[in-house]
Design a protein around this nucleic acid. Structure first.
Length: 551
RNA sequence: GGCCCGAUGGUCAAGCGGUUAAGACAUCGCCCUUUCACGGCGGGAACACGGGUUCGAUUCCCGUUCGGGUCACCA
C-alpha cells in the first residue's frame, strides 16, 4: 500500500464509501437541456439581509425562467455562529417576498428533495468521502499548525506579496507518513489542507454570467478543506455540495469573486464539472457622498424584516428589485401593466456589474404605483392584516366597520387615474385618520391668504346651506353659489386674470371647508369624504371650526 | 500592499466606432384642477482625467485618479 493510501486510511478509517457511491446516490438530474438548477445557500445568522433576498431572488428567477429548480441549502458549518431559530427567520423572510424553495430546507429541520441532507452540518460523511480520495490522490494532507504558528507565518510575510499557506510557508505539506502517524497517535489536532497543484505563473479563467470573462492567477494556497472538528470550510463544501446537488448556476454575492481560483481547483481536483457562476453585485447605500454596502448595523432597510414591519407589499419589493436587476423591466412593465412579474423575461446577463444604490425614494414611488392599482378590498385586506400584527389599536378602529373602511380606502381609487398616496400599510393610519374621531387631529391651520374672518364667513355661509343629501354636482354647485355673495369667484381663471377684484376663488372656499372637516389642506375628493363622514360628524366639525374662528 | 472588478445627469441606467447621448425616479416650470394627487407638456442636468489607435472615440488599448471586493480552522 502506498503512503497516500495508508494516510487516507489513517485519517478516515470509518469512511468506506467512495466517490462513485456518491455519484450513484446523487445521480445527475434528469432535466431537459437548458433547464437550470440554482440555489440560495445562506448561513443561519438569525438575520436576513436584503442582499440575501436580492441574491435569492436572482437565483430564483434564474431557475424559474427555465422552469428549473431552486433549492435552499443551509450553510451551518460554523459551529461558533449557530443561532436558535435562525433558519425560520430566513425562510419566513424569503417566503414573504415570494422566494419559495422547490427543494432543500423548507422549515426548521424540515427538508424536501432527493439530494439532501441540505444542512451542511448533516453532510459530514459525504465531505469525508471526497476528502479521503483527495488524500489518496496526494491532493490533500493533514496540517498540525496551531493558530499561533499560523500567526507567525503571517508575521514573516510582511514583504511577501503572496500571503498565506503555500510553498515554503506550508510547513506540513511534506510531512512523512511516519511523522504524521506519530502526531496523530499522540492525539494532535489537525486540519486537512489542499495540496494545491496550482502555479501562480499560470492563469485561470472564469466566464461569469454577470461579470464576463475574467482572468486570475491560479490558486497556490493550501487552503483548509476540513477544520479540526472535521467540518468542511465553505470552499470545500461548496464544491462537493453544488456538484452533488447538481447545481447548474451558482448565483452568489460578488464578494466570492476572488475565491474563484480556489473553487475552480476544488472542482477540478476531484473531477467535478465546474458550474456556471453568476456573481451579483451588492446593494449599496449612500453615505457622505460615497457608496458602501447596505449595513446590517447602520441601515434599518438592510433587514428584510424592515419591509414586513413597515408593511410594504411583496409585489412592491419584487418590482423594485426587478428594476435593479434588469433595467429593461420598467419598459416592459409599461406595456405589460397587468402581467405577473413571473412572465417578465428575466435575463442574468442584463444584471449590472457594479453595485446599485438602494433608492428609498424610488422604491416608495414603485410601491405607490403598485398599491394605486389595487382594489379597495385588497388595500383594506392587506392593511388589516398588517395592522393586526403591528398596530393593534389601529386594527380595532379599522376593522370595526369593514365596509365603511373599505369605502374610505376606495375614494378616488378605481378610476383611470388612481391616486398614489400610499407606499406601505403603516402609512394608512395617518392617511385616513380624519375619518375617525379617535385619530382625528383637529388642526385648523389655514393657508396664509385666508384670515380668521374669511374662514368664519365661509363657514357660516356653508353651514346654512349644507345638505347631506346632495349629489356631487349639487354639492359643487352649492360651493360655487357660496362664492359671489362673499366676494369670491367660482371661476379660477377669472381670479387669475384679475386677482385684485376678489377675496379669492372657489378653491379657497373649499379649502376652508376641507380644513374644518379634515384638519388638512390636502385630501382626496372632499365630497366623497363628507359623504363618508356623515352629517353629524360634518356638522360637528364645521361648528367647532366656526367657534374657533369666531373667538 | 498583492490580486480582481468598476467608472455615462443627484440616483438607477440604455448605449457596443459616426446618436440632437434613450428612458425611469428626483427636481424645476406650465397646463388640467374645489385642495392635494393623478395625468399631460416642457426645462435644467452626464460620458472621471491624460495619452494613444482611427477619417472619427462615451464606445477599443495603455496609464492616472477615484470607488468597490478579497487576501481566516467566517460564510
Amino acid at each position: 500500500m502506498s503512503d497516500n493510501l495508508k494516510l487516507a486510511e489513517l485519517l478516515f478509517p470509518n469512511i468506506t464509501e467512495t466517490p462513485d457511491d456518491m455519484e450513484a446516490k446523487f445521480p445527475p438530474r434528469n432535466l431537459k437541456e437548458g433547464v437550470r438548477v440554482t440555489r440560495l445557500a445562506p448561513s443561519p445568522t438569525g438575520f436576513l439581509h436584503f442582499g440575501n433576498l436580492f441574491a435569492g431572488t436572482v437565483a430564483y428567477r434564474t431557475a424559474k425562467t427555465t422552469d428549473g429548480i431552486f433549492f435552499v441549502r443551509v450553510e451551518d458549518t460554523d459551529q461558533k455562529r449557530k443561532i436558535e431559530g435562525a433558519v425560520k427567520v430566513m425562510l419566513d423572510g424569503l417566503e414573504a417576498f415570494g422566494v419559495t424553495a422547490d427543494e432543500g430546507v423548507i422549515g426548521e429541520d424540515m427538508e424536501k428533495g432527493d439530494y439532501g441532507p441540505y444542512y451542511q452540518s448533516k453532510r459530514k460523511d459525504i465531505y469525508h468521502v471526497f476528502a479521503k480520495t483527495l488524500v489518496e490522490k496526494d491532493l490533500a494532507y493533514p496540517c498540525f499548525c496551531s493558530a499561533e504558528e499560523l500567526d507567525e507565518i503571517r508575521a514573516q510575510q510582511e514583504n511577501e506579496p503572496q500571503k498565506g499557506y503555500w510553498g515554503k510557508y506550508a510547513k506540513c505539506r511534506n510531512l512523512s507518513f511516519d511523522e504524521i502517524a506519530e502526531k496523530i497517535s499522540a492525539g494532535a489536532p489537525w486540519t486537512l489542507r489542499l495540496k494545491s497543484p496550482g502555479n501562480a505563473e499560470n492563469k485561470c479563467f472564469i466566464d461569469d454570467m454577470i461579470k464576463g470573462k475574467i482572468e486570475m492567477p491560479e490558486n497556490v494556497q493550501d487552503i483548509v478543506l476540513l477544520k479540526s472538528d472535521g467540518i468542511p470550510t465553505y470552499h470545500f463544501a461548496h464544491a462537493v455540495d453544488d456538484h452533488l446537488m447538481r447545481t447548474t448556476h451558482v448565483v452568489r454575492g460578488d464578494e466570492w469573486m476572488s475565491s474563484c481560483p480556489v473553487h475552480l481547483q476544488l472542482f477540478k481536483c476531484p473531477g467535478f464539472k465546474v458550474p456556471k457562476y453568476a456573481h451579483v453585485a451588492p446593494i449599496m447605500k449612500e453615505e457622505n457622498g460615497g457608496k458602501r454596502k447596505l449595513s446590517k448595523r447602520k441601515d434599518p432597510e438592510a433587514a428584510v424584516t424592515f419591509y414586513i414591519e413597515q408593511g410594504y407589499p411583496k409585489e412592491s419589493v419584487n418590482e423594485y428589485m426587478m428594476t435593479l436587476m434588469n433595467s429593461n423591466f420598467e419598459d416592459w412593465r409599461k406595456t405589460n401593466k397587468d402581467a405577473s412579474i413571473d412572465s417578465f423575461p428575466f435575463n442574468l446577463k442584463k444584471m449590472s456589474v457594479s453595485g446599485a444604490l438602494f433608492d428609498m425614494v424610488k422604491f416608495n414611488d414603485v410601491s405607490k404605483n403598485v398599491i394605486s392599482l389595487m382594489s379597495a378590498d385588497k388595500v383594506y385586506g392587506y392593511t388589516a392584516e398588517w395592522a393586526k400584527e403591528y398596530d393593534a389599536d389601529f386594527y380595532a378602529i379599522l376593522t370595526e366597520d369593514p365596509a365603511h373602511s373599505t369605502a374610505i380606502l376606495g375614494v378616488d381609487r378605481d378610476t383611470p387615474k388612481p391616486r398614489k398616496d400610499i407606499a406601505c400599510w403603516s402609512e394608512v393610519k395617518d392617511y385616513i385618520s380624519y375619518y375617525f374621531d379617535e385619530l382625528f387631529d383637529n388642526n385648523l391651520e389655514m393657508p396664509e391668504n385666508i384670515t380668521a374672518d374669511m374662514a368664519k364667513e365661509i363657514l357660516e355661509a356653508y353651514i346654512a346651506v349644507y345638505n347631506e343629501n346632495d349629489t356631487k354636482d349639487e354639492w359643487f354647485q352649492r360651493m360655487k353659489d357660496l362664492c359671489e355673495p362673499l366676494g369670491y369667484t367660482p371661476n379660477v381663471k377669472e381670479f387669475k386674470k384679475n386677482p385684485e377684484a376678489f377675496k379669492g376663488h372657489v378653491g379657497d372656499v373649499s379649502t376652508v371647508i376641507r380644513v374644518a372637516v379634515t384638519g388638512r389642506r390636502n385630501t382626496p375628493d372632499l365630497y366623497s369624504i363628507m359623504s363618508l363622514l356623515g352629517k353629524d360628524k360634518v356638522m360637528e366639525r364645521l361648528n367647532s371650526a366656526l367657534k374657533h374662528f369666531s373667538a
